[in-house]
């Protein structure tokens, strides 16, 4: 009987511990999920090498440090310098960082050789007409 009570107490304690743990975990997850990226104006970047740091949320689980190289006004390289996640390797981040480089690289002032019928032009004309409406 005593054994059963002890077992129950242990199970209860584990359960409470798990629930409390989960509570903290989900708080942290939520925080990470709701992390807002404010957007960068890629047209206004000064050349240089910059180190960026994120403190990693309430438990510092996602702390990491990245190096960003800007040349001729554009991001040409991003490297993960350190991470509190022992599983993170620089290679894991490459795909993600490449997407950042690609996204900014698509920002252009004008397109050479675009056809007269190309949708881009039609869009531009459309937006001009929209403005003309006001």
């Amino acid at each position: 009987m005593t054994g059963l009570v002890i077992a129950l107490v242990i199970i209860m304690l584990l359960g409470i511990g798990g629930a409390i743990g989960w509570l903290f975990l989900s708080k942290e997850h939520n925080e990470a999920r709701n992390l807002s990226l404010d957007g960068v104006d890629f047209s206004r970047l000064k050349d240089g090498t910059y180190i960026g740091e994120y403190e990693g949320g309430m438990y510092k689980w996602r702390a990491n440090k990245a190096k960003v190289v800007i040349s001729s006004g554009k991001v040409i390289d991003i490297e993960l310098l350190s991470s509190s996640d022992p599983g993170a390797k620089n290679t894991d981040q490459i795909a993600l960082y490449d997407r950042v480089i690609d996204a900014q690289s698509l920002e252009v002032d004008a397109i050479s050789g675009a056809t007269l019928t190309s949708k881009a032009y039609l869009k531009a004309v459309e937006s001009a007409l929209e403005q003309a409406k006001k």
Binding site: S43, R44, S72, G73, L106, E107, V108, D109, A110, I111, S112, G113, A114, T115, L116, S118, K119, A120
Partner: peptide, 30 residues
């Protein structure tokens, strides 16, 4: 000025950076 796909520029952008001109993909219109 972008004269129907002919692009010509004066100077740099006001912040001193060069103008970035996209080259139309020859097989992918968009």
């Amino acid at each position: 000025t972008n004269f129907g796909g002919n692009v010509a520029a004066i100077g740099t952008k006001p912040d001193g950076s060069p103008w970035r001109i996209g080259i139309q993909h020859p097989r992918n219109e968009n």
